[in-house]
Design a protein around this nucleic acid. Structure first.
Lengths: 134, 134
DNA sequence: ATCATTGTATTATTCACTTAATACAGCAAT
DNA sequence: ATTGCTGTATTAAGTGAATAATACAATGAT
């Protein structure tokens, strides 16, 4: 096979916190890496043990995160060879769109709950984007 | 007497979930009720036991949520009389502004992580708001 | 003075998440 | 055949959150 370097993550930072289940946070990071193309369809993933060491978590915890991702169809396993990103590009695109829609609806819900009108929300968003570039 | 109805929440729904600490979710709801004016500055709160019963949680859990809110200065306690919303209007206004800014920055961060440009994000927000009214 | 209500404190138990330490089966390269 | 890597499974232990069941001190109303 192509020897060497299936390390596609280099100096990854996992910044895991204790306020939410770690395996959930790992799933979220992996999903981000998939929809943003850091992991390409069909890519081989580092082993459970390697990733666990890199993220400084127990191999069981990393294994659990992968099991869930596999249950959702985002990765698949070759029993003794390793894990791979799904080659279903449609699924990946749909996931990205869904994650964006979730972020949007969650944000709009928050602003509505705080009592901001749609106009006020738009105004605040525009201001935030302006200051971002500055 | 019980004729005094200091119940300002009526048929409140707490929709608590098990994916995050309950006392955190309670704090979030109380904060929303404060910044949106459901609870006014100086208002007396229902007793720990009453609120615990209403939210279907253990009194200890409700007590913990209040302890944290008190630590943050949003409520204060009269030892054997009850709890009250802070009368510091400035603090409440600042909290509301901070919650809005947090929602915005969290949203923008999510969209950036997903790889959307500021322009794309704005476009998606506008579309979401249009469909909302329709 | 008595009583109900208030916030508060204590102890024990349960549960999910996490870690730790192994162990096993299957495939590839040597 | 041996070695090394892969995913996977198992058991034990520790931790924080939540519940349950009480108990106590202080205040206001009666």
């Amino acid at each position: 096979m192509e020897g060497t370097k299936n390390i596609k993550h280099s100096e990854n930072e996992w910044h895991l916190t204790s306020d939410r289940p770690v395996f959930i946070q790992i799933m979220e990071k992996l999903k981000l890496d998939i929809v943003t193309g850091i992991y390409q369809p069909g890519d081989k993933l580092p082993s459970v043990r390697d990733l666990a060491g890199e993220a400084a978590v127990n191999p069981n915890t990393m294994q659990r995160a992968f099991s869930e991702l596999e249950r959702e169809g985002l990765v698949y396993t070759q029993r003794t060879n390793g894990r791979f990103i799904t080659e279903d590009i449609t699924m990946i695109d749909q996931l990205k769109e869904q994650m964006a829609l979730d972020a949007i609806s969650q944000f709009l819900k928050s602003m509505e709950q705080l009592g901001f009108s749609d106009e006020e929300t738009m105004k605040l968003i525009k201001e935030a984007l302006k200051e971002e570039t500055a």
